[in-house]
Design a binder for these strands. Structure first.
Lengths: 254, 254
DNA sequence: ATCTTCTAATTACTCCGACATATTACAGGA
DNA sequence: TCCTGTAATATGTCGGAGTAATTAGAAGAT
């Protein structure tokens, strides 16, 4: 099973010079348009209620065909960002209609300067969900789950979190916990949020030293899950989330 | 292989009658295709890894233009259900790539016979999130929030939950709680799940009597939030979720 | 003879632009 | 104030050219 991240790894901060959306490798043209528009909406460049320029005009402005533009609009519509009706044009929907937990929307939100309030909301949600996930994992894990966690933990120790391999091991560890909950809804929710949030911390983190060694805290989570102790697992995971929050908060200069 | 009726209109009317009653967003053609395919995938009619018939063949089979089919595929792609690559065709992605929390995907999942395990997962998630939401609401609500909740409660009492007006009031009540959390991520998550799940209960519920009068339990939640008591609010909401779970479980014959 | 590697053709998606249709916001008249 | 007509705009359709990836076949090496 390829557990590949959605490709949120081309920091294409295309200047306003060319209206063309840069199309990365493997990214389709309409995907690039959707990416561009999605980021513009998420970054607050369009206010809810704003109506985008007409279809033909916009497509011409972006130097693409109407088909590509329309397919991009379909993507945004599917994610609840816009709605288009004849004569009225394509309007940006109010924020509460947005599909904020969609992985791509999350990626767009974090691509620019993420809204501080929104990051706070997400961490609040993580603080609610992830300890509960650890609790369930402690009750339901089997030997295979524990082995995967243990291996990931060892890999985290070998490489540090400063390396990509180390961060991959970190993801594997958390994914193993989510898998052990035997709850798909929980899995997709936490995985989406985690991917987006960790991406920012990684992005901002380059120059800064890690606040403290996170390995012992991970070990505590593992031990509690291995021991089948739900309460301790939840508590240990809560510490981990708090740690990530501090980390991100300081990275965002708050 | 027979010709199929292209009009797969279901009685979808707007869910929030609050705003200026936008006459049902007359489902577009590609929307109908996406609906049809999405339901087929969610109902397990296509296994992950299955490759759909070619674009031209499928579009011809459905008696629609390739453009309409393609835009439908874009919607499904945006929701992580399928992936299409040149030469390889359009393949159904593994379940863990699906955007299970997308409102439309949830609706598709519940349109047919919803998977029992998935329903269980969703209720587990609700049992985690909703009490926490009530807790936050108890800490952050202001007078306006309380007034909206109180009015909704009164409306619930006036009409019963057997009427559409009563269920609308129920939704208003829960939405007011979510608004009071001041957390958009929490709001969209819970609203999506709640809408899908409550829709099924409503669907299955017609002939069956309600297991017990739910009003007092709602009042308990309101009182705790009004009193600013986070712990009591969380506990009372937990009771409400359990009640909904029993309700749904018995409706699904479990 | 079997395996490996490279090339080429097939195939299906991707993008395009033009045309026809349906819907609706808006304005002007009853 | 209400109604009705019109223009503006999105939606649906079509066929074709372009592009990329899989597959199969050919050539070479062991």
């Amino acid at each position: 099973m390829g557990k590949e991240n959605p490709s949120l790894q081309d920091g294409e901060t295309d200047k306003e010079g060319s209206a063309k959306a840069v199309r990365g490798p493997g990214r389709r043209l309409h995907g690039a348009i959707a990416h561009k528009l999605g980021m513009a909406i998420l970054s607050g460049q369009y206010q809810p209620g704003d109506t985008l320029s007409g279809e033909v005009a916009f497509a011409e402005e972006l130097e693409v065909s109407r088909s590509a533009y329309r397919e991009a609009i379909q993507v945004l519509t599917a994610k609840g960002l816009v709605e288009s009706r004849p004569k009225a044009g394509t309007r940006v929907l109010p924020r509460n209609r947005w599909n904020l937990l969609d992985p791509e929307v999350l990626a767009w939100a974090f691509a620019g300067e993420p809204d501080v309030q929104f990051v706070r909301d997400l961490f609040e949600l993580r603080a609610i969900v992830e300890p509960a996930a650890a609790r369930l994992a402690a009750q339901r894990r089997d030997k295979d789950d524990l082995k995967i966690m243990k291996d990931a933990l060892a890999a985290m120790r070998r490489h540090t979190l400063a390396t990509e391999a180390g961060r991959a091991a970190d993801r594997d560890f958390h994914n193993a916990i989510l898998n052990a909950t035997r709850n798909d809804a929980l899995l997709v929710l936490t995985a989406s949020i985690g991917a987006a949030v960790n991406w920012t911390t990684q992005y901002k983190q380059r120059a800064r030293a890690l606040p403290r060694n996170p390995i012992p805290d991970h070990v505590r989570v593992y031990d509690a899950i291995a021991a089948g102790d739900p309460v301790a697992a939840a508590e240990a995971m809560g510490v981990l989330v708090d740690l990530a929050l501090e980390d991100t908060a300081s990275a965002m200069g708050n």
